[in-house]
Amino acid sequence: MDSVNSSPVHAAKKGPSIKARLSNAFVSLYEINKFILRFFKEAFLPPFEIKEVMRQCYETGVRSFTLITFTGFITGLIFTKQSRPSLANFGAQSWLPSLVSIAIMRALAPLITALIAAGKVGSSIGAELGSMRVTEQIDAMEVSGTKPFKYLVCTRVLATTIAIPILSTYTAFVALLGGYLNVATNEGTSYTTYWEQVFEPLTFVDFVSSLAKAIVFGFTIGIVGCYQGYFSNKGTEGVGKAANGAVVTAMFMIFVEEILIVQIAGWFR
């Protein structure tokens, strides 16, 4: 059977050229930068939608809480379990709490939190604003003398920027608890000793870089989700695309930012 792609009709339908795609990419980059500048221009000027920011913070936290608790705990547990044989070869199982704490604080906690939030919160923001756009709810806000950008975008971006670092700290805690469960079961390490060993190798730079990552990731999830939703079109298809675009773009950006922040933090160590 001939494949659909080899049919003459399909062959005639060529996608956009490389030049057009490149041009579109630069236009998108320009538009998203304009969107970010608009956020900074409007977010810190009165009137402040504090109540709505708090509501969005709660939504962000609640949407991801169960999944983050589960994922964080399992990550800590599995990471400890998988690392033991390598350390055992050198008779260095006592270093496990230090290894786990460095891995979780420096990389895993902010990254896991951000990836889960990108899936849960980012997609939800993209879909919600996308659906508000196609059903003219954003236009309705605009014509009633309200600034929809401030009420919908600024509040959500601020909420994710505040909530993701809190969730990341919580992820680190439950992941370390997972690690403790494994260490205590195998080595019989006491709770106090475990936590002492956890904090021993950590430096001020580790805490700051972890927090900085979580803040940047939170901002990225919010801004990408809002951008995709706010400028969504083409009806219900556009809503799906906005939700999907919010997740894919945010995840890509998170990995790029992870590399950059690790590099910058390395200069201070």
């Binding site: 508000m132 059903t135 003219e136 709810q137 236009d139 309705a140 806000m141 014509v143 009633s144």
Partner: peptide, 11 residues
């Protein structure tokens, strides 16, 4: 005042 075709009520 603007009354939208699909009402545009906030869901």
């Amino acid at each position: 005042g603007f009354s939208f075709q699909n009402s545009a009520l906030y869901d």
